[in-house]
Amino acid sequence: MKASSFGYARPASLAEAFALLARHGEGAKLLAGGQSLIPSLNMRLAAPELLVDLGALGELEGIAPLGQGLRIGARTRHCEIERSALVAERAPLLAQAAPHIAHVAIRNRGTLGGSLALADPAAEWPACCVALGAQIVIASARGERRVAAEQFFKALYATELAADEILVAVEIPPPAPQARSVFLELARRRGDYAMVGLAAQANRTDGQLRDVRLVFLGVGAIPVLARHAMAAIEGKAADAAAIAAAQHELSKDLSPNGDLYTSAEAKLHLARVLTGRALAALAR
């Protein structure tokens, strides 16, 4: 199981990377941490002409304050997010989600930007970014632009990124003082991709949940914002009746496809279970 032959370039600057993308077009593939790309190369599911390794681009790395929020470089590795005190303080949802990503050896190489750009529907970061209302920072020779995470994911493994663009950073707005977050995931084994997962964020004031964001992973082609369920709980105390109402509404938000081991009905059921658990936790 050996990858087919490809070329390899390691640009020293973004400009150089843009030039490579321009020259090779669809034949070029960006290499970030490689933890999803390299297996697909080894299995010959992908056969690019050229890998453009972003590994030398220091400007894509690091976690920094952005006002009261955060800017996380695209090449920041999962393990760095997991360990960051700044992330734990300003975007605890990410810190909660990180340990669910595969295993340590993978987290030591896999990157935030790589995960977002791949847009695996069962991955953790896309759902978290949507839940947090993050902005995805995209650069190209044409300049830089920002896209809300909610708009970034288009379809299965498809994003807003054009062939000549590079995801350079994620900007996360400051958390509200009353913000709470919960990340829950059901996977058959530790570190496996989620059967169903939920990134949940809300502000709790006077025992009520406001600005609730419920974003599911593993139940659709992209991270799914459960608007009906969110509306059902908005401004309410998370009591049994309100939770049940939100769970009920989920069938309007989710139309999951079954996978190898889990049917669509089971996924919807499990999403309801996670919703109940998440809302109870947010309200605690």
Partner: peptide, 9 residues
């Protein structure tokens, strides 16, 4: 740091 040797070129 440990990595997967098969997922590193």
């Amino acid at each position: 740091e440990i990595v997967r040797g098969c997922l590193t070129l």
